[in-house]
């Protein structure tokens, strides 16, 4: 097996960080919204759709992370 050069390794780490950190950020952001949404749905099930929408809004953060990861990998 050929040893990969250090640049490639750094690129991979960068891509991993982009996805991992944005994933954590999404999780933190969704935590509060999700808890509140579940509470609202328990009171009134017709809040389901709105609750879902509110909960998944921060998911865009991790999608950005994925997009950035691809840009980083593509530039290497």
């Amino acid at each position: 097996m050929v040893a990969p050069d250090i640049g490639q390794g750094l690129i991979a780490i960068g891509a991993g960080l982009a996805i991992g950190l944005t994933g954590i950020a999404t999780g933190i952001a969704e935590k509060g919204i999700g808890a509140a949404a579940v509470g609202a749905i328990a009171e009134n099930p017709s809040f389901f759709a709105r609750g879902l929408i509110m909960t998944v809004i921060p998911e865009t953060i991790v999608i950005f992370g994925v997009a950035i990861a691809f840009l980083i990998l593509g530039s290497g």
Partner: peptide, 12 residues
């Protein structure tokens, strides 16, 4: 723009 990139989740 965020909405547009949001569709990348399908492939992801």
């Amino acid at each position: 723009l965020a909405n547009v990139i949001s569709y990348a989740r399908l492939a992801a």
